[in-house]
């Protein structure tokens, strides 16, 4: 790891100021991803701005929203009574990610900003437009078993690795960010971006902006009928091949509202809007779930080694919905 300067500002404003005036500075909170990337030489910030002690670590309900501070640890959120009761989908997704040790280090904001685990991104000997813009994409015609089937470009077919973010996308969360010009809110589904021609940019955050919290609307129907399913190469502590976050608001055997998102399939948590639209107002039957999964896959494209995801994802969608609905 190359040498770097270390500063520990005592306010969010001072942290934003420190980042804004220094092009190569980066925030560090848990460090579970950034330190790994620095050891590999994938990133090399000249200054780290330690935000881990800023008072952004509370979880509270206000009205119909639950607000989670950006510096809450993944384990704190997953074990919090309010989250387990009102947002069990989020708790499940968090517990499906990483290991207990990493969940004790990783923060909510850091989880959102974690980089892809594409092996070409990590391998300095290989081309990667995300790591080194213009160098090419090693995965496009390479060993792309873990890669995207939705929204990819000729520049990048990497996937976002988070489980937590799949649940937050499904739950219609909002991201609160602070910048030098004040606070702004970003809808969670618009927070991460598709690779296009600039895969080096993972999100729509501007330089100097600091995530301070996420807000999630509560829906008691979803809390009763939700499930996060993660399919991976080993039973625990592995990134998703595919994952599905699903929530149903069922009344009188009718799907009043439905939320579906998939992980491990795109450069961002992938909301399955077409499937949601199909299911709304219908009854929770296996045939409807199959038709919804088919609708979800209309824009999917395999790249060779990841073609199996074209079958695995719809099967996971159907399995998840059937389990929730008990059919």
């Amino acid at each position: 790891m190359i040498a770097f300067d270390y500063v520990r500002p005592n306010s969010a404003k001072a942290a934003v100021d420190a980042i804004t005036k220094d092009a190569s500075a980066q925030f560090i909170a848990g460090g579970s991803n950034l330190v790994d990337l620095m050891k590999h030489g994938v990133v090399a910030p000249q200054k780290l701005v330690d935000i881990s002690r800023l008072p952004l670590n509370s979880i509270e309900q206000s009205g119909n929203n639950i607000r989670i501070g950006a510096l809450c640890l993944n384990s704190e959120v997953a074990e919090h009574a309010l989250i387990k009761e009102k947002l069990p989908l989020l708790a499940q997704a968090l517990n499906a990610g990483a290991s207990p040790q990493i969940r004790n280090m990783a923060t909510v904001g850091g989880n959102m900003l974690q980089r892809t685990r594409c092996t070409y991104f990590y391998d300095l000997a290989m081309p990667c437009n995300k790591r080194q813009p213009g160098s090419g994409c090693g995965a496009l015609k390479g060993y792309n078993r873990m890669h995207a089937i939705f929204g990819a470009s000729n520049s990048c077919i990497a996937v976002h690795p988070s489980d937590m973010c799949v649940a937050l996308a499904a739950l219609d969360a909002t991201v609160i960010v602070a910048g030098s010009k004040g606070e702004r809110k970003i809808s969670f589904v618009d927070f991460h971006r598709l690779p296009g021609d600039t895969p080096e940019k993972d999100t729509h955050l501007q330089k100097g902006e600091l995530i301070t919290a996420v807000e999630i609307p509560v829906n008691d129907g979803f809390a009763k009928h939700s499930l996060y399913t993660k399919v991976r190469d080993r039973a625990s502590y592995a990134f998703a091949l595919v994952s599905v976050a699903a929530a149903l608001d069922l009344q009188n055997n009718t799907i009043q509202h439905v939320r579906l998102a998939a992980g491990g399939v795109a450069h961002k948590p992938w909301r399955l809007m077409a499937a949601e639209k199909y299911l709304k107002g219908k009854s929770p039957t296996e045939s409807n779930f199959k038709a919804a999964a088919e609708a979800a896959m209309s824009a999917a494209k395999g790249y060779g080694y990841n073609d199996f995801k074209l079958t695995l994802l719809p099967n996971t969608i159907i399995h998840t919905l059937k389990t929730i609905a008990g059919v």
């Binding site: 270390y6 560090i28 460090g31 579970s32 330190v35 790994d36 050891k39 590999h40 780290l48 384990s75 290991s99 207990p100 040790q101 990493i102 004790n104 280090m105």
Partner: peptide, 23 residues
Amino acid sequence: DYGQCGACTVHVNGKRVLSCLSL
């Protein structure tokens, strides 16, 4: 040394963490 094996696990303020990824 990359947070994959857990051999470096220690407790910090009573919580288990990976010391190899902690500055």
